[in-house]
Design a protein around this nucleic acid. Structure first.
Lengths: 343, 343
DNA sequence: CCCGGCTCTGTAAGCGCTTACATCTGCACC
DNA sequence: GGTGCAGATGTAAGCGCTTACAGAGCCGGG
């Protein structure tokens, strides 16, 4: 009846193992495992003994050992560029909540500021069953490809790559709608602010911008290519104030940019939207608070995260990759900065 | 010379193991491990053979197996309530960046909306070497205590608990300073908005609020106890508009609250700061953009995250817990909403 | 020419779990 | 009273790595 014990030490609570628990409860490690996993049949009196022992020893199973045995990490990886602004946070919240529901931990990796990205990603791949990557994350395509084939991968809001699953929000159509809305206000010199080559979704938004012009037989002006940094907004505003950029409406690639420009312009005494209209993208919190309210586009960011976690889990559970990109609907939010009297 | 191989299959690249790599490279698994870990001495020609094999098989080591062998997860856990607003994101970014520098992955858990918190935390404990918990995370103290003793724990911005390491930003003193600043503007009916019992840092801020009054021989009014939700701000504003709350200055527990109230008040035609001053806490992005700019307090949130990651790592590496709480300095940011002409 | 001491590589023993399979009860049934 | 079966438990074989230890070459010095 003596319990097998290659593990002589039963002391250190900090190092309690399934063996010490088994010994203390007077059962075999198999029984302990069964009780803890709720698998198999165990009499209730035995189960109680085990539970007591677990309690007394303050036993926490070693995840790595279980992972090795079951051959699953029970964890999903998420790769984001960074976390400023509400976009990524919201996405992460969606991802985490769904992953947790599915019993998966989430291991986060931020790419910005990382010296050796490839190494970091490879290291991540080592500890998770599947990985979701934000399209805008500065991830060498080669890395993404290497990952794929090793682990299920889904790309969020990025250019779909051959054979890699992807999910994103609709961009081009709403951009066209938004642009058309501004044009309908009678504006004629619209300028797109943001770098279409900087990220795939920006490219799409720009495409919508162009399409709206073409639909009216207009030729769109060249975009003002700037990165997302808040500081860039000021710079753009300066160029406008200096007359370097001529425009009566600005279609910005995101709200941060739009807000910075708008605020700077207003400080310089310009009338927004009177002299110049400004619209953004993302519907961040600030956009509701500034005056005039910023007209923008709302994306189902939270849901993007949820879906990514969901797909990952299904793939890990053996589902086949979904061939075509999943595209979620967005919504134009009209406030005052476009010229509408709304508020 | 034949390589040991209990593992007959050498096919499936998706399932490449150290055995298949070893076999392919014509060496033993020990050598493969040495090459990959950069430990021990391996001739460069052998190393190259291994590297080639790794490449061809697209081999990704199984983290769980390594963790089990080295008896470290090489991962830190971080428990936050949620991720809206810049506070938690910034913290997380600090945490992640430092953890990554130290070669640790970060596994994130969000408590809001989690049905079985205790279970979730226990599950987290299973997969990481150490855990940082945000003080405001709705974590049953019992859980925190159970964790502690199992794994190193640090509490961020929370009430220090017996024997548990903690790090936070200074609150009481800056709150006193901020309050005194408002009082110095000649305001007499200040009201604290926020629930001192809701979170330990709020309690401290309230204490500072009270102290500033006492220092002038004034008796502070009772706080308006409301939670953080943005919606609550509107409700408070309504109560002020209705004359239910009498005040010529509002000291709010955080910026979200302050902004919501201020914006609502302004929409109703009230003059801020003319009729009523409003100050907040956190210096979120929006606070720079609204007019008047919101006077607030800036905390070294990023650094809080960095330090937490740092301490965790040191503890895992055998360092003793730091006895007294580490307290970081904050900074009052004066803008216009307090009555200053600044801008 | 032998030997000590390198350098490089292989052998094998775990790390702490899960789980298929074997074993052992006890009990209902004939 | 024997048979069969279901329920409860134990046995032991891995899961894929790391690493202490040992062995095999090889070099130079005495």
């Amino acid at each position: 009846m003596a319990t097998a014990r290659k593990h002589p030490d039963g002391a250190a609570s900090a190092g309690a193992t399934i063996y010490s628990v088994a010994e203390r409860a007077g059962v075999s490690i198999a029984t302990v495992s069964r009780v803890l996993q709720g698998a198999g049949t165990v009499s209730s009196t035995t189960a109680q003994k085990v539970l007591d022992a677990v309690d007394q020893l303050n036993y926490v199973p070693l995840g790595a050992a279980r992972s090795l045995a079951v051959r699953h990490h029970e964890a999903h990886g998420l790769v984001l560029p960074e976390l400023t602004g509400p976009y990524y946070s919201e996405l992460l919240m969606g991802f985490e909540s769904r992953a947790a529901e599915l019993g998966q931990s989430v291991t986060l990796m931020l790419t910005d500021g990382k010296a050796d990205l490839a190494r970091a990603v490879r290291q991540l791949a080592t500890r998770v069953d599947a990985i979701a990557v934000l399209g805008s994350a500065a991830m060498p395509p080669a890395v993404a490809r290497a990952l794929h084939g090793q682990k299920p991968v889904v790309i969020i809001a990025g250019t779909p790559q051959e054979g890699i699953e992807s999910v994103r929000a609709e961009n081009a159509h709403s951009a066209e709608q938004l642009t058309e809305h501004v044009l309908a206000h009678g504006r004629t010199r619209l300028v797109f602010v943001g770098d279409p080559e900087g990220a795939p979704d920006i490219a799409e938004r720009h495409a919508g911008f162009v399409a709206a012009h073409r639909a009216r037989g207009l030729e769109p002006a060249a975009p003002v290519r700037v990165p997302f940094r808040e500081g860039e907004g000021e710079a753009v505003a300066e160029r406008i104030l200096a007359g370097e950029i001529e425009a009566d409406a600005l279609v910005c690639a995101n709200d941060e940019l739009a807000l910075a420009i708008m605020s700077h312009l207003q400080d310089a005494g310009r009338d927004v939207p009177g002299e110049i209209a400004v619209v953004g993208w993302d519907d961040v919190m600030t956009s509701r608070y500034v005056r005039p309210g910023l007209t923008t586009v709302r994306q189902p960011v939270h849901e993007l995260g949820v879906i990514a976690a969901e797909r990952l889990h299904q793939r890990v559970s053996g589902a086949l990759p979904r061939l075509e990109p999943q595209i979620l609907r967005t919504e134009v939010v009209i406030r005052g900065s476009c010229g509408c009297p709304t508020r």
